[in-house]
């Protein structure tokens, strides 16, 4: 069987995108609940839900040749989209934009989340910038941060050594930290 490079990540059909979205949303929501309840051990490890999603979707032809790792990679992309979309909606709501009434019942009193929403949006933009400078590094950050990939998995996914991942990660993280500071 031909090995798939990260560039070959298939674009899922609309129905499957939605499915993947709701799976990752629930994974993130589950994670959010455990973080809030002070469970320090909780990490982003989308194995359970995403694995199940993979089992399901792997039977559809578009995913038939997708390995579990690459599927997890697609899920990481979905997680990024979910979080960015959530942040975008909340900030646009704050600014009175959008014209939708969707969030009127949500608690809008805290300013803190708004700052964090902005941070998430800046991370999203910075990752797009990084993708132009070094696509592999952007893939790496997306997989590690949004997909919970560990170092060996990331190395396997991107087909480079673990040492390279560690190096790339360190530089990218430092650079992104600056980029996502307020006022940048």
């Amino acid at each position: 069987m031909r090995k798939r490079g990260p560039k070959d990540v298939p674009v899922p059909a609309r129905k499957n995108v939605d499915y993947l979205f709701s799976v990752t949303y629930e994974e993130l929501r589950r994670l959010a609940v455990s973080v809030k309840s002070g469970d320090q051990a909780s990490t982003l490890n989308p194995t359970a839900l995403v694995h199940e999603a993979w089992l399901k979707l792997a039977r559809s032809s578009e995913f038939a040749a997708t390995s579990h790792l690459h599927f997890k990679r697609i899920a990481a992309r979905a997680m990024r989209q979910v979080l960015v979309e959530a942040a975008r909606r909340r900030t646009s709501q704050k600014r009175g934009g959008g014209g939708e009434a969707v969030f009127v019942t949500f608690d809008e009193s805290l300013d803190q989340p708004a700052a964090q929403d902005e941070e998430m949006l800046r991370l999203d933009r910075a990752l797009d910038d990084l993708a132009r400078l070094n696509p592999r590094q952007a893939d790496m950050v997306e997989a590690r941060f949004f997909g919970g990939f560990d170092i060996p998995e990331t190395a396997q996914l991107l087909e480079v050594s673990e040492a390279t991942i560690l190096r790339d990660w360190r530089a990218a993280k430092a650079w992104l930290a600056i980029e996502i500071r307020p006022g940048q």
Binding site: R29, V35, D107, M120, K173, A177
Partner: peptide, 26 residues
């Protein structure tokens, strides 16, 4: 940043999720 960093990326996606999705119902 490398030495003292505590950016969003260090805090982890769990924290990000907790914040981004923490829209409690009023």
């Amino acid at each position: 940043e490398d030495e003292h960093g505590s950016s969003l990326i260090d805090r982890g996606a769990g924290q990000a999720a907790a914040q981004a999705l923490d829209a409690s119902l009023s």
